[in-house]
Computed example of a mutant assay.
Amino acid sequence: MDDASLNAGPLNAGPPITDSARDFAAALPEGGALLALDLGTKTIGIALCDAGWRFATAGKTLERGKFGRDRDTLAAICRERSVRGVVIGLPRNMDGSEGSRAQASRAYARNLSAALDLPILLWDERWSTVSAERSLIEQDMSRGKRKERIDSHAAAVILQAAIDALAGASI
């Protein structure tokens, strides 16, 4: 693994948590469905992709609760859909630095990796919500429906960007 890997050494044995598409692809040698999360303070947007890493599809939006409840819901989705890895949006500042929200996402990733025993890719989510909103507006979706669906569509934008990078990393 390269310097982008966030898990290194014997103290962090288990599935990798990385921001490198190449390292994440290596942890998934047989491919498999992926789950993406757009972590908000009140909700979690969910998206899934097929085992061939071609298309990201917006799923549902979960009301964020205690980690144990969220973990159980996400574990059930992973079992149902045979998920082999998780992509979590990493909210970087516009200058690329990381603030408290990014630190919270990294902590969530560590807890989720341990709970699900799945590799996790942290993916830069800058502009994902803006892109998702534009797409929903282009679909002539009402403001109320956009509010309900924006988080899951942002997760799909994050996931599509990640699987596009994974396709290049696995060549």
Rank of each mutant, 00 (worst) to 15 (best):
A36Y: 08
A33L: 03
L34G: 03
L48G: 07
R84M: 12
A36D: 04
N111K: 09
G14N: 02
S128M: 00
R84H: 09
A76K: 13
A75G: 13
I88L: 02
G99V: 01
S20L: 04
D3K: 13
G9C: 06
A132C: 07
A115S: 13
S97N: 08
A58C: 08
N7S: 12
G99S: 09
T129C: 08
S113G: 06
N93D: 10
V157S: 12
G9N: 05
R81Q: 14
L6N: 03
D38R: 05
T61L: 09
L34Y: 02
L74H: 07
D140F: 06
R69A: 15
I150M: 11
G9S: 05
A161M: 06
G144H: 14
L90P: 01
R92Y: 04
D70N: 15
L159Y: 00
A155W: 00
T18Y: 03
M141A: 10
K145D: 15
D38P: 13
W127F: 12
R22Q: 12
D19Y: 00
L122I: 00
A115Y: 03
A155N: 02
A114N: 11
L121W: 14
Q103F: 02
D70Q: 12
E80I: 05
A165H: 07
A154H: 04
A76C: 11
K42H: 12
T73P: 05
A114M: 09
K60G: 11
A25V: 12
R149Q: 14
R143P: 07
L159P: 08
T18G: 04
H153Y: 08
S105C: 06
A36G: 05
A107K: 10
